[in-house]
Every structure is written in C-alpha cells, then in structure tokens.
Design a protein around this nucleic acid. Structure first.
Lengths: 189, 189
DNA sequence: ACCTGAACACCGTTCAAGT
DNA sequence: ACCTGAACACCGTTCAAGT
C-alpha cells in the first residue's frame, strides 16, 4: 500500500533486498530465509520482491556472489611463500567465518571455489613464487583450492571445532591443517 | 485404507521407509524428498510415516547414520603407511560417491566426520604405524579427518570435477590431493 | 515502471478418530 | 498398535489488476 511505501525512507531496491536477506541468513541460517518473511522484514508485499529478483534461487546466488566478491581484494604482505600461503588461508578463513551460514550453503552447492576465481588465482601466484613451474602450479593450485575450500567448510559447519576444539579465536586446528598442506606443497618443489 | 495395506506385501516399517527415502535422495537429491512424496511412493498416508519416524529431520539423520555405518567396516590391506592412507582415502571416496546427494547434505550439516567415528579411528591407527606418537597421531588424525572430509565434499558437489576434470572413474585430482596430504604427514614424523 | 491481492500447488506436522 | 482424514500454519510463485 502507498502508506508503507511512503513509510520506507527509500524505494525498494535489489541492493536493499540483498542486504536484508544477508542479515537474515547471518542471523538464523539459510533455511530460515523465506521470501515471505523477507518481505515482511522490508515491510513490503511478498510479490514486490519478484520485480527485483528472479526467484529465491537467484536471490541466494546473488548473496553468495556478493559475499565472495569480498575475496577479490585479499592481499598478502611480503614474506616467504610459506608465510604468504599461511596468510592467504587465514584471510579466507576470516572471510568465511563472517558469513558462516551462507558459506555453508554455498559450498554444499558447487560454485564456491571457482577456477579463475580470487582464491584460485591467489594460490597459483604464490605457488609460482614458491618455484613450481606453470603447469604444475595450476594443478597444485586447483588441488589446494579444493582442499582449502573443504577445510573452510569444516570451520563453518563446526566439524573442526568438534574435532580439535578450534574456535573463531583459537585457530590451532586450522593452522595445523594449513601447515600440513604447506609441507605437502614443499615436497612438490 | 485397508486395501492399500493389504496390497503392500508387508507392513510399513522404519527400515522400508529409510530404504525408500534413500532411493529418492539418491535419485533426485535431498531437496526433492518430502514426507508426502515419500508416503505416495510407499502407497501410504503421509501421516503413517510419523508412527515410525519422529519427523523429517530424524529421517534424514537416520539416513546419514545408515550410510555412514558402511564406513564401519572399511579395511585396508598390508603395505606402507603411505599406501594404506591412500587406500583408505579412496575407500571413503567410493563410499561417498555411492550416495553423493546425501553426503553433500550430511557434510554441510556438522555430524559427518565424527571423533571416534570409523574414518577418524582408521586414520589414527595408520598414523601410529607411520611412527607418530600417541598425542601427535590424535591431533594429526583429527586434522586429516577434517581435510579428507572437506576433500570428499569437493568430490560429491562437483568442485573437484570442475577444477581438475576429475570424475568417478578419473580420480587424478583426488589422488593428487591425497598424496599432498601424505607428504604433509611425512614431514611430521 | 513498480507495487499489490487473490489464488494455486505445494510443504511439515498435530490431533482426533477409526481399525 | 497402527493407520487415516481433516485441518493448521506455513512455503514459492503466477497472474491479473491497480497506481
């Protein structure tokens, strides 16, 4: 109704929808997100959403796209390739922990780790400075991306915490895993 | 109705429900499983299911329990600890690929890899024969269980296939990852 | 162009009633 | 003890109507 529209400070927008949806997912998980509750949150008719988003699947896709965009500009400082790899992994960890519920969902579907995506590229770059040749660094980069991706899931879904007692602040399990990977890479040089 | 009950060769049973549910999940994924469709498949009133299963969540839980039970009796032949680790990983891979849809769901929730579970125990045993002492083999075992669990998810959700071209029959990506892990373990001895 | 209400085809689950 | 039908409170989404 016009009253509600006027009550909102601004017109309904795709960005506003995504923001509200992400807040809901962060708070209560993907399964708690419904088009109808989202509309209620925005004080809007459920059907209004469909003017800005194709459907619920597209909405969730937009959400993961939005969050993984944040990985586009992770940057590692100077240091040995081991230190760089360690830093990189921890940056991705921090990013993932910021939106655990969404990451958990996104990674169980298949498009979280992307060939040519930020994670994959950063890995390959570091591997080349480690002394791996071009084709080998591509192969190892892909394998490592998969391994780190899987590792991140064990962080966001609580497996790591259950197995090691690892926590958002205590990252011993995660760090151990990353060092193990680094040693594995070292054996390939 | 009595006719339907008589038409069924046997009375409705928890096991029969789980079997049918697993078939549906294997065929079309967890999201395609509904209590109502499952009941239709079994030629039964939807509500009859609730006499054998608490609710849908319990049903899915029972399903994962059923499938992961299969891991209870994986066995590795003789050989070096490296070969044994390699074998073990591949057995879990085969097990996972047999029920990709369910595994994908189970692992995005948090109770797929269990401390003291079959995967974790087998890993620890092998690690001790590799020469790691008791506490170290526990730590490394947990980390490795998380890593292999994550790796398996990249197999069932198609990430590995996308990154490497790995397939059910072609396991180059998976094998590379496992060897990298093995080398990482070797560095810890 | 954007928003809305009514409607459709689904869900999981409770509860009282049947056998 | 097991099964059932009706009912409740939800879903996502389409479509015709409003501004």
């Amino acid at each position: 109704m016009a009253a509600a529209a006027k009550a909102r400070e601004t017109r309904l927008t795709r960005e506003g929808i995504l923001d509200a949806a992400l807040r809901m997912v962060d708070a209560d998980g993907v399964e708690a997100l419904s088009m109808r509750k989202l509309a209620a949150e925005l004080d809007v008719n459920p059907m209004s959403l469909y003017h800005h988003v194709d459907n619920k699947a597209a909405l969730l896709d937009g959400l993961t796209r939005m969050v993984t965009e944040g990985a586009r500009d992770v940057v590692v400082g100077p240091g040995t390739w081991q230190e760089q790899l360690f830093q990189l992994a921890h940056q991705f960890r921090a990013l993932s922990l910021g939106h655990r519920n969404l990451i958990r969902y996104a990674f169980s579907s298949d498009d979280f780790v992307q060939r040519g995506g930020p994670m994959w590229c950063s890995l390959c770059a570091i591997l080349r400075t480690a002394g791996l040749d071009e084709p080998e660094s591509e192969r190892v980069g892909a394998v490592l991306a998969a391994l780190v991706g899987g590792l991140l899931l064990t962080e966001v879904n609580g497996t790591m915490r259950r197995l090691i007692g690892d926590d958002d602040s205590d990252d011993t399990g995660f760090s151990m895993a990353v060092w193990l990977l680094i040693d594995g890479v070292a054996a390939r040089r």
